[in-house]
Protein backbone atom coordinates (compact mmCIF):
# COMPACT_ATOMS: atom_id res chain seq x y z
CA UNK A 1 0.00 0.00 0.00
CA UNK A 2 1.16 3.50 -0.70
CA UNK A 3 1.00 6.02 2.11
CA UNK A 4 1.51 9.75 1.93
CA UNK A 5 2.50 11.73 4.96
CA UNK A 6 4.55 14.67 6.11
CA UNK A 7 7.82 13.78 7.77
CA UNK A 8 9.96 16.50 9.30
CA UNK A 9 8.16 19.11 7.27
CA UNK A 10 8.48 17.40 3.90
CA UNK A 11 5.75 15.58 1.99
CA UNK A 12 6.83 11.99 1.45
CA UNK A 13 5.32 8.75 0.29
CA UNK A 14 6.26 5.18 0.99
CA UNK A 15 5.26 1.75 -0.22
CA UNK A 16 4.39 -0.26 2.87
CA UNK A 17 2.74 -3.50 3.87
CA UNK A 18 0.00 -3.35 6.50
CA UNK A 19 2.22 -5.10 9.03
CA UNK A 20 5.03 -2.58 8.80
CA UNK A 21 5.31 -0.42 11.90
CA UNK A 22 5.79 3.30 11.63
CA UNK A 23 9.24 2.90 13.19
CA UNK A 24 10.33 0.38 10.57
CA UNK A 25 8.87 2.52 7.81
CA UNK A 26 10.81 5.58 8.98
CA UNK A 27 14.01 3.60 9.34
CA UNK A 28 14.00 1.29 6.39
CA UNK A 29 11.73 2.93 3.81
CA UNK A 30 12.45 6.59 4.51
CA UNK A 31 16.03 5.98 5.72
CA UNK A 32 15.58 8.06 8.84
CA UNK A 33 17.63 5.82 11.08
CA UNK A 34 17.78 8.25 13.98
CA UNK A 35 14.62 6.61 15.32
CA UNK A 36 15.80 3.49 17.13
CA UNK A 37 14.04 0.25 17.84
CA UNK A 38 14.83 -1.22 21.24
CA UNK A 39 12.09 -3.71 22.05
CA UNK A 40 9.35 -3.77 19.39
CA UNK A 41 6.73 -4.30 22.06
CA UNK A 42 6.05 -0.83 23.34
CA UNK A 43 8.07 -0.71 26.55
CA UNK A 44 11.45 0.91 25.97
CA UNK A 45 10.50 4.18 24.25
CA UNK A 46 13.55 4.33 21.97
CA UNK A 47 11.27 4.50 18.91
CA UNK A 48 9.28 7.48 20.16
CA UNK A 49 8.31 9.88 17.38
CA UNK A 50 5.93 12.81 17.35
CA UNK A 51 2.73 12.28 15.36
CA UNK A 52 0.45 15.28 14.95
CA UNK A 53 2.06 16.83 18.01
CA UNK A 54 1.81 13.78 20.26
CA UNK A 55 4.72 11.59 21.33
CA UNK A 56 3.88 8.01 20.38
CA UNK A 57 5.62 4.67 20.27
CA UNK A 58 6.72 4.13 16.69
CA UNK A 59 6.65 0.36 17.16
CA UNK A 60 3.00 0.36 18.26
CA UNK A 61 1.67 2.34 15.35
CA UNK A 62 1.32 0.88 11.89
CA UNK A 63 2.79 2.84 9.03
CA UNK A 64 -0.61 2.73 7.29
CA UNK A 65 -2.08 4.55 10.28
CA UNK A 66 0.24 7.46 9.58
CA UNK A 67 -1.45 8.19 6.26
CA UNK A 68 -1.91 11.95 6.18
CA UNK A 69 -0.14 12.51 9.49
CA UNK A 70 2.59 14.96 10.39
CA UNK A 71 5.51 13.03 11.80
CA UNK A 72 8.57 14.47 13.49
CA UNK A 73 11.66 12.40 14.24
CA UNK A 74 14.91 13.25 15.96
CA UNK A 75 16.27 14.35 12.59
CA UNK A 76 13.39 16.79 12.33
CA UNK A 77 14.15 18.25 15.74
CA UNK A 78 17.69 19.01 14.71
CA UNK A 79 19.05 22.16 13.14
CA UNK A 80 20.96 22.22 9.86
CA UNK A 81 24.05 22.55 11.98
CA UNK A 82 24.73 22.77 15.67
CA UNK A 83 22.54 21.66 18.52
CA UNK A 84 19.15 22.81 19.74
CA UNK A 85 18.90 24.02 23.33
CA UNK A 86 17.49 20.62 24.36
CA UNK A 87 20.30 18.77 22.60
CA UNK A 88 22.83 21.19 24.03
CA UNK A 89 21.48 20.58 27.52
CA UNK A 90 21.87 16.83 27.01
CA UNK A 91 25.49 17.32 26.02
CA UNK A 92 26.18 19.71 28.85
CA UNK A 93 24.70 17.42 31.51
CA UNK A 94 26.13 14.22 30.03
CA UNK A 95 22.60 12.93 29.62
CA UNK A 96 23.65 10.30 27.10
CA UNK A 97 26.29 7.65 26.90
CA UNK A 98 25.73 5.00 24.25
CA UNK A 99 23.18 7.23 22.53
CA UNK A 100 20.73 4.50 21.66
CA UNK A 101 17.81 5.72 23.80
CA UNK A 102 18.66 9.37 23.13
CA UNK A 103 16.44 10.01 20.07
CA UNK A 104 13.41 8.73 21.98
CA UNK A 105 14.32 10.84 24.99
CA UNK A 106 14.61 13.93 22.81
CA UNK A 107 11.35 13.40 20.92
CA UNK A 108 9.47 12.65 24.14
CA UNK A 109 10.86 15.69 25.92
CA UNK A 110 10.32 17.91 22.91
CA UNK A 111 6.66 16.96 22.76
CA UNK A 112 6.28 17.37 26.51
CA UNK A 113 8.04 20.71 26.81
CA UNK A 114 6.29 22.10 23.76
CA UNK A 115 2.96 21.34 25.44
CA UNK A 116 4.07 21.97 28.99
CA UNK A 117 7.10 24.25 29.10
CA UNK A 118 6.59 24.68 32.84
CA UNK A 119 6.60 20.94 33.53
CA UNK A 120 7.83 20.16 37.03
CA UNK A 121 10.71 17.83 37.74
CA UNK A 122 8.20 15.29 38.97
CA UNK A 123 6.19 15.56 35.77
CA UNK A 124 9.32 15.16 33.66
CA UNK A 125 10.35 12.09 35.64
CA UNK A 126 6.91 10.65 35.24
CA UNK A 127 6.86 11.20 31.49
CA UNK A 128 10.40 9.94 30.94
CA UNK A 129 9.54 6.80 32.92
CA UNK A 130 8.26 5.52 29.58
CA UNK A 131 11.77 5.67 28.09
CA UNK A 132 14.41 3.23 29.25
CA UNK A 133 18.02 4.36 29.49
CA UNK A 134 20.49 1.74 30.65
CA UNK A 135 23.58 3.98 30.82
CA UNK A 136 22.98 7.20 32.68
CA UNK A 137 20.81 6.40 35.68
CA UNK A 138 18.46 9.16 34.41
CA UNK A 139 19.65 11.81 36.87
CA UNK A 140 21.46 13.84 34.18
CA UNK A 141 18.57 13.41 31.74
CA UNK A 142 16.21 15.04 34.20
CA UNK A 143 18.74 17.80 34.83
CA UNK A 144 19.04 18.41 31.10
CA UNK A 145 15.28 18.53 30.65
CA UNK A 146 14.90 20.98 33.53
CA UNK A 147 17.58 23.13 31.95
CA UNK A 148 15.97 23.04 28.53
CA UNK A 149 12.62 24.25 29.82
CA UNK A 150 13.74 27.86 29.56
CA UNK A 151 14.09 27.70 25.79
CA UNK A 152 10.60 26.19 25.42
CA UNK A 153 9.16 28.84 27.73
CA UNK A 154 10.91 31.43 25.57
CA UNK A 155 9.59 30.05 22.30
CA UNK A 156 6.08 29.85 23.70
CA UNK A 157 6.45 33.47 24.73
CA UNK A 158 7.58 34.36 21.23
CA UNK A 159 4.44 32.96 19.63
Amino acid sequence: MKIELEVNGAAVSAEVTPRMTLADCLRHELHLTGTHVGCEHGVCGACTVIVNGDAVRGCLMLAVQAQGAKVTTVEGLSLEEGLTPLQQAFKHHHALQCGFCTPGMLTTLHALLTDEPEASEERIRDVISGNICRCTGYVPIIEAAMDARASYQQSRGDK
Partner: peptide, 10 residues
Protein backbone atom coordinates in the same frame (compact mmCIF):
# COMPACT_ATOMS: atom_id res chain seq x y z
CA UNK B 1 30.53 11.65 20.40
CA UNK B 2 27.44 13.50 21.50
CA UNK B 3 26.96 15.67 18.46
CA UNK B 4 26.09 12.82 16.12
CA UNK B 5 24.07 10.92 18.71
CA UNK B 6 21.96 13.94 19.57
CA UNK B 7 21.15 14.64 15.94
CA UNK B 8 20.12 11.08 15.18
CA UNK B 9 23.28 10.62 13.13
CA UNK B 10 24.81 7.78 15.08
Amino acid sequence: EDYRFLRGEG
